[in-house]
Design a binder for these strands. Structure first.
Lengths: 217, 217
DNA sequence: AAACATTCAGGAAAAACTCCTATTTTATTT
DNA sequence: AAATAAAATAGGAGTTTTTCCTGAATGTTT
């Protein structure tokens, strides 16, 4: 295991920088820690401090997390970046890794997980927190381009049913509305939830909302 | 100025708890600090630890921040709660204060601001970060009234279940989350839908959305 | 034409929901 | 302090919904 790992912390929230610092300082394998509050500063500080690992948040003002990853990678292709984020969604993990990150942990993780992740990526391995990776192959769920995903995944008739279910109609209501048998709608219901990878009507509503199909007021 | 202020930290993110702890520990006027990761735990811990100030995030899984404030206030009307949040929007500030919080600071604030806020509220004053207060009058009362309508109609526990169901959890998930039997949740589910006069989870989601209890992206 | 997707729906089993009842705890009122 | 009301919890039984499998009719693509 690597010793004396130099860490560059990048986060715009003071409390989070302080927190990470505290968690890391209690680990024996951690060396010097420098923290900065924006991606731009990270790029400058990187070439001066030459950390072994860069630990950063994805969502930051300024150039943001993803662009920071790209720039750091351009500066030095061997840079080791560990991303942590409130976003558990696969699409973020995917993008971060694509941009050049070597690890990804959720902000909800326990202290040990965060420390472990640092030590693992410092050794040159990848660290993607359990539960995040499996979804990567999966749906681009929660994507901004979800409208297309939905439109692609659902047949026209399924989409009709989806809209009504998401609006809050019962399967019987939908059947009446579309002049279909109840069983037909019930089966569509199941089918739609499978295709969109959700398990209940509330989640359908969420998707519809995100797609702007439902006006929130 | 108060000395030896006992603080109860409530946040679901390990790093944030650690960060706040670090920032506060460096202040001479801060005494013992206890941290918990959820609102439910805060309510329990409060009566045991009897902190001078409760410092908490608004957005948490489980019963969430607002409901936690209400419950703490009910437990002890003199409780001093300082809220910090990524949400700078006036509506959140207003709701938090209405629920019983004594202070509100943004998560982006500098370390000194956070520490100062704790010491100010500990003295029994209010502390609303500059820049947040002016907008408070600006709030539309519509949503807040609806929130009260829901909060009035539902008992606290029903409200907990409502939030989770509206978020898209199944009855089984909710049961696991709140450590209840499935049947209990199933029965609450029925009860909640009756009280809110809706007939399915999608409509619950709509209501939660309108109330701003669900972040749409 | 053959292969495939789409629309529609029935049957059977599994799961979820509803309604009723009941115990325990907590609050409120007299 | 006792009585009353409200809330939290959950079991049982019956009903409804969902799921999964299957299949026919229609249309479309290669």
């Amino acid at each position: 295991m690597r010793e004396n790992i130099k860490v560059l912390l990048v986060d715009d929230h003071t409390v989070v920088r302080a927190g990470f610092r505290m968690l890391l300082e209690s680990q024996p394998f951690i060396g010097e820690i420098v923290d900065v509050e924006r991606g731009e500063m990270a790029c400058q500080e990187y070439s001066r401090f030459l950390p072994d690992v860069v630990v950063m948040d994805l969502s930051m003002p300024g150039i943001g997390g993803l662009e920071t990853i790209r720039r750091l990678c351009q500066q030095n292709e061997d840079v080791i970046i560990l991303v942590y984020s409130i976003h558990d969604e696969a699409i973020y993990v995917e993008r971060a890794l694509q941009a050049g990150a070597k690890g990804y942990v959720s902000k909800n993780s326990a202290a040990e997980v965060l420390a472990t992740a640092v030590s693992v990526v410092a050794e040159g391995k990848k660290y993607i927190e359990a539960g995040l990776l499996p979804e990567v192959q999966d749906v681009r769920h929660n994507d901004t381009e979800q409208l297309h995903a939905v439109a692609d995944a659902l047949s026209p008739r399924e989409f009709d049913v989806f809209c009504l279910l998401a609006k809050g109609l019962s399967a019987h209501d939908v059947a009446a509305e579309l002049c279909l048998g109840y069983k037909t709608v019930a089966n569509y219901n199941t089918q739609i939830k499978n295709k969109l990878n959700v398990s209940n009507a509330a989640e359908l509503a969420h998707i519809a909302m995100r797609l702007g199909l439902i006006k929130t007021g």
